[in-house]
Design a binder for these strands. Structure first.
Lengths: 187, 187
DNA sequence: CTCCAAACGCAAAGAATTTGCGTTAGTCCC
DNA sequence: GGGACTAACGCAAATTCTTTGCGTTTGGAG
């Protein structure tokens, strides 16, 4: 049940999904994003367009699917020795990755899809990473803010600025982390 | 120069733009969003599809244009007698409007467009409203946080949750405002 | 008043999307 | 293991959307 949404692991569906995802990533890396179409992806993946249309419906849905996959963290946040250091390192890296052209585009792809599942999953990934940092900090006996507080004070401003204004620099991210950590005492 | 990007006020271009915007709004209100297409909008507006394609390029650009228009505030924030009250009232209304289905969709439309002009303009609208509240507060001799601080502590969490998670209730919005107002003392 | 540039309408060509039908692959139950 | 069943796929035709060339109109400048 915790199995993502996909079909069963070894089936034909899974193979098609993998090859379509791979084709989409390859094309996105190779050419301008406005020129990537479903027939192109289908040709690259070795399937017929109708297969993609039936499964994903629109290009946005497919790209969102691919983007969510790429936004899933592949490792635990670095352990710098303190919760504050961990959060700062994580936040700086996150801000940098997401403000890159690729990161920006992935976020927008995720948001463009119809169902709310993609964005929520991304938020979940972030919350999970913060949770790891938090548990590590608490195990060391340190104070650490609630995950929701970190989302509100650190993650939200980073993402909001990337989407609507201009990406925050490392110094501003540091300020956000400091503000969030100040919240920890009230726990 | 503060004139938006559009053509001169009375020209033919302006009339076409107005009628296309109106047609798009009418169709969005009347039918499901996935069924709204450029040829449909063109028919409703009484122009040929190629006109729309040439001016906006894609449906997303047009919808983003329409959404930005609708997101522009049409009046100054209510004056409740104090900066804190003004901000609270504004934030609660903003959160409510943006978390509605319509608001959500408009935000996503704005973000889906290619150029970064739309999102920045929306952010500018918000900053402007906050600026009005701030100037009123300062004129009364009250303390009030920087606009950037309000964006980070109040607006960003509201929008982030709407886009990625679940909309915040009025109580949580109140907490955000309280946090932001606490910042004012350091000015 | 005349000229000019930008924008529009029309229509044909090209590309993408939808859909019906036959076939295949994997699954479940003997 | 073997047979039936379901979901997904391939193919191809029909539909709809998108692009583009060319002539015409419109509003503004000199």
């Amino acid at each position: 049940m915790g199995d993502r949404e996909g079909p069963r692991p070894g089936g034909r569906s899974a193979r098609v999904q993998a090859s379509v995802h791979g084709a989409a990533r390859a094309l996105l890396a190779r050419m301008d994003r406005a020129q990537v179409t479903i027939p192109l992806i289908a040709a690259e993946a070795g399937v017929t367009p109708s297969t993609i249309y039936r499964r994903w419906g629109e290009l946005h849905e497919l790209l969102a699917d691919v983007a969510v996959e790429r936004l899933r963290p592949d490792m635990a946040p670095a352990d710098t020795g303190s919760g504050r250091g961990d959060l700062l390192a994580w936040a700086e890296q996150y801000a940098e990755e997401m403000s890159s052209d690729l990161g920006r585009r992935m976020i927008r792809d995720v948001l463009a899809a119809e169902g709310g599942a993609g964005p929520r999953r991304c938020c979940g990934y972030v919350a999970e990473q913060i949770g790891v940092i938090a548990r590590r900090a608490l195990a060391r006996g340190e104070a650490f803010p609630e995950t929701d507080a970190v989302l509100d004070r650190v993650v939200a401003p980073i993402v909001y600025r990337i989407l609507f204004d201009e990406a925050l620099g490392p110094d501003r991210v540091g300020d956000l982390v400091a503000t969030a950590m100040a919240e920890a005492r009230r726990r």
